[in-house]
Design a protein around this nucleic acid. Structure first.
Length: 302
DNA sequence: GTCCAGGATTTTC
DNA sequence: GAAAATCATGGA
């Protein structure tokens, strides 16, 4: 795992392109479309997005490589290796899954699905905006939010403008009416309150990393509009607590269909089940089941 | 008009 | 305490 030197070392753009060798399976398409991130866009067989303050283009290559293009010269690629979690031993994680038929099918369908390591603020804000919205709508809301309030980032010459995710300081100063103009509805007041608490220092978001899961979850759930599910998404996608299993309508649907014969099991019982059944990387199992039932299983059950 | 979405909160037993 | 009812909004 690591970044290979560019094909043409003498070029002045030598640090703007490279390719990453990924020894383990890495399904970029499944990873970026599995509902954990909302900012990546498919462009001509590749994916374009913004990580932190950097515009990035990723393209799958043969033999387990990823082509990487940035807009500015880069010497230290640790930010991308961290975001893509290239140091993670995915086969080792999959080996901890219980050997049941649903997981076997899900892993077989998208064996290179990864969990990314997202910025906590962007992740928290994104999932505050996610509640009772479809993924395509969440993408649209966040795109508007970034375009209107995010700082422009450097893009390749001639490329359309791109923006960083707006900081909590910026969003704390945006009116609820302006936020609602991004089609986020009642979530506007929740986003503003979260931005205010983070910007003021009342909520030390980075500090959440140091807490055990129950305390970290409790801290996040003090925010209005953040319940168990959204808190768990932030714990899993931003803080890397890979044993956390967020249960949304789709995950609940998958659990009931695959493990309870489609019977209407209450949510509380599902939480008890996932806490003991899926093992130390239950969050990965969740992502596989979530993506599988949405994309590969027709999304329907009896 | 109806139904649904990577839910949260309030009310009620 | 947990289960049920209410809230909420844009799009298909």
């Amino acid at each position: 795992v690591g970044l290979r030197p560019p094909e043409r070392p003498a070029s002045s753009r030598e640090n703007r392109r490279g390719s990453i060798k990924v020894s383990d399976p890495f399904d970029l398409d499944a990873t970026l479309t599995s509902g954990q991130v909302f900012r990546w866009r498919p462009v001509a067989g590749a994916w374009e997005g913004v990580v932190g303050r950097r515009w990035v283009r990723l393209q799958p290559l043969p033999y387990g490589r990823l082509a990487v293009q940035t807009a500015e010269a880069v010497t230290d690629w640790s930010w991308l290796e961290d975001y893509l979690q290239l140091g993670v031993d995915l086969p080792g994680i999959l080996a901890t899954f219980p050997p049941d038929e649903p997981l076997r099918r899900a892993v077989s369908a998208c064996g290179g699905l990864r969990l990314l390591r997202q910025d906590p603020w962007e992740c928290l804000a994104s999932f505050i905006l996610s509640s009772t919205k479809q993924i395509v709508q969440i993408q649209a809301v966040i795109a508007q939010l970034c375009e209107r309030f995010g700082e422009p980032v450097i893009v390749p010459a001639g490329h359309a403008a791109a923006h960083a995710f707006p900081s909590p300081e910026r969003l704390a100063g945006v009116s609820e009416v302006e936020l609602r103009a991004c089609r986020m509805g009642f979530r506007a007041k929740y986003l503003r309150e979260a931005a205010w608490r983070v910007a003021s220092g009342e909520l030390d978001l980075a500090g959440v990393q140091r807490f055990p899961v129950p305390e970290a979850r409790e801290v996040l759930m003090r925010l209005p509009g953040v319940g168990r599910k959204i808190a768990d998404c932030v714990l899993l996608f931003a803080f890397g607590f890979s044993d956390v299993f967020p249960i949304d309508v789709w995950a609940a649907r998958a659990l009931r269909a695959f493990y309870y014969g489609g019977t209407p099991v209450p949510l509380r019982q599902l939480h008890e089940f996932v806490a003991s059944y899926f093992g130390p990387h239950a969050g990965y199992a969740q992502q596989y089941l979530f993506h599988y039932i949405r994309v590969h299983d027709g999304g329907l059950d009896p």
